[in-house]
Design a binder for these strands. Structure first.
Length: 467
RNA sequence: GGUGGGUUGGCCGAGAGGCGAGGCAACGGACUGCAAAUCCGUCUACACGGGUUCAAAUCCCGUACCCACCUCCA
């Protein structure tokens, strides 16, 4: 069984063949850090984290680059509105994004380059494009440099569109463009923009266009040809189309496979357009744990549109808790968390089939059911639980992953104190049960339940957990 | 105008010509003092209208509704 991936450039599932056997170069467009990260934003992070983990689990040596866009029109506008420096806004949002990723156990990439840290590479690439006749400085003296779409016959190949069929933006300002579809590689500094948001270039002070950064950074860290380029569907056009055009026009083969994750919407609306506040990561994490939100995102296929709702999120959380409870039972029986085991064949087949995480999750439930049947057989149980743990780990959902252990020393002390108190009450309840005084026994259980403590009687005596 | 995607049981969500994903909820049974958990079982769905086929949720034609992108977007 080999890994197959849906390539959105060819619009089909293809066998994954790396350029260099055993190695994968992966580039994912990260975020423009202009506002608080919400659930939609992190989906891409989680989806490509799963890809990266699966590639590693499959034995590949992965170089994963995920950039941060820290200079663009919106950052300048928003920071001006807020009366703060643009780099301060970008930096704060970048820190929030890093925290959100950490909260969801999205592993850091090999490197996370900033657009502003790669201006020389971009200038170099733009110069190459001008030399090759695929770009030109605007004739209007604005200092802008544009990519000449008409000079690149293959333009539109990624999204299968003909240049003449494209509709120009209603608000398009032709500026110094030769064709309305030409896009900016370099934007000359405007008098209204802060001096700090400009860099020197052969065409005067200015800042990079949006697309050139990814071409330059992917080229720098992964080389002119690399394996997989990812991002959200909305980026296919214009962003990825333009990236590919400029990179190839500059003489680089660029990405072999393109992967795009679908949207999360609320009430059918794009998250970026709708509300906002209630769906930022910190807000959502007040209602469910990070691991539960991640499970919710992983349980849907990355190319499927997800209609976000707290109800569905709650159901997903219930499903995850079932798996978690099984592993905890296994750990109690075995005396320690199960060692990592072997992923079952169905899981592997599902993941190899274009990261079929829904079927992979179903496979986990199958193994868990088998495990629940052999709770009194330590060897069989260890095998099933180890397998479940390993599969969860591949999805970034291992309950014992240090990423989820947020509690500090104080939390541990608190947990120990609660445990002592609950155990005292359970001892009283057991006494009552022994005396067939079930009214008292149930009263104690109800009191604990009201406090959020669930009691379960097992062969080894009562266990408690926080609901 | 151009380019794509979607519509699946009470709900969430896979699948992509036959072998009926999975989860959540519900119901019945086993277990339990009663529960919980767990196990066993039940609940036969694919927007609509045609067609192809021995066989269609899956392929074809048409219709309806929804969504995304077309130079700010995960």
């Amino acid at each position: 069984m080999t890994l197959r991936l849906y390539d959105s450039a060819t619009r089909e599932v293809r066998d994954f063949v790396p350029l260099v056997p055993g190695r994968v170069g992966l580039y994912v467009c990260g975020l423009t850090v202009q506002s608080e990260p919400h659930v939609g934003h992190v989906r891409s992070g989680v989806n490509f984290d799963v890809l990266q983990r699966w590639l590693r689990a499959s034995g590949f040596d992965v170089t994963f680059i995920r950039n941060i866009t820290d200079i663009d029109d919106k950052i300048l506008i928003k920071s001006a509105d807020q009366g703060r420096a643009w780099y301060n806004l970008a930096y704060e949002m970048s820190r929030q994004l890093t925290q959100a990723y950490a909260d969801l156990n999205v592993a850091p990439p090999t490197y996370e380059p900033l657009a502003t840290g790669h201006i020389p590479e971009m200038v170099e690439m733009i110069a190459t494009l001008i030399e090759r006749g695929h770009a030109y400085p605007a004739a209007d003296g604005s200092g802008d440099v544009y990519f000449d779409v008409r000079s690149w016959a293959a333009y539109g190949e990624l999204t299968h569109q003909g240049v003449d069929d494209m509709e120009s933006a209603a608000d398009a300002d032709p500026r110094g463009k030769r064709d309305p579809r030409d896009f900016a590689l370099w934007k000359g500094r405007k008098a209204t923009e802060p001096e700090t948001a400009s860099w020197p270039s052969p065409w005067g002070r200015g800042r990079p266009g949006w697309h050139i950064e990814c071409s330059a950074m992917a080229g720098k860290y992964l080389g002119g040809a690399f394996d997989i380029h990812g991002g959200g569907v909305d980026l296919r056009f214009p962003h990825h189309e333009n990236e590919q055009a400029q990179s190839r026009a500059a003489g680089h083969a660029f990405a072999s496979y393109w992967m795009h994750n679908a949207w999360i919407t609320t009430a059918g609306e794009k998250m970026s357009k709708s509300l906002g506040n209630s769906l930022t990561i910190p807000a959502v994490l007040q209602r469910v744990r990070g691991v539960e939100l991640r499970y919710y995102l992983v349980a849907a296929h990355y190319r499927s549109h997800v209609e976000f709702s707290f109800e569905a999120l709650g159901e997903a959380a219930a499903g995850y808790r079932r798996i978690e409870a099984f592993l905890q039972r296994a750990a109690d029986t075995l005396g320690a968390p199960p060692d990592h085991g072997v992923a079952c064949a169905d899981f592997v087949a599902a993941m190899d089939d274009d990261l079929g995480t829904p079927a992979a999750v179903a496979a986990i439930f199958e193994v868990m059911r088998e495990g629940n049947k052999v709770l009194d057989d330590p060897v069989a149980l260890a095998g099933a639980a180890g397998s479940v743990r390993t599969m969860l780990d591949i999805l970034g959902l291992d309950p014992w992953d240090p990423a989820w252990q947020r509690g500090g020393a104080d939390d541990e002390k608190l947990a120990a104190a609660v445990d002592a108190l609950v155990r005292g009450l359970l001892a009283q309840r057991n006494q009552a049960r022994a005396e067939k005084d079930f009214a008292t026994a149930d009263l104690i259980r109800d009191q604990l339940s009201a406090a959020g403590v669930d009691v379960t009687d097992t062969a080894d005596g009562p266990k408690w957990s926080v609901s």
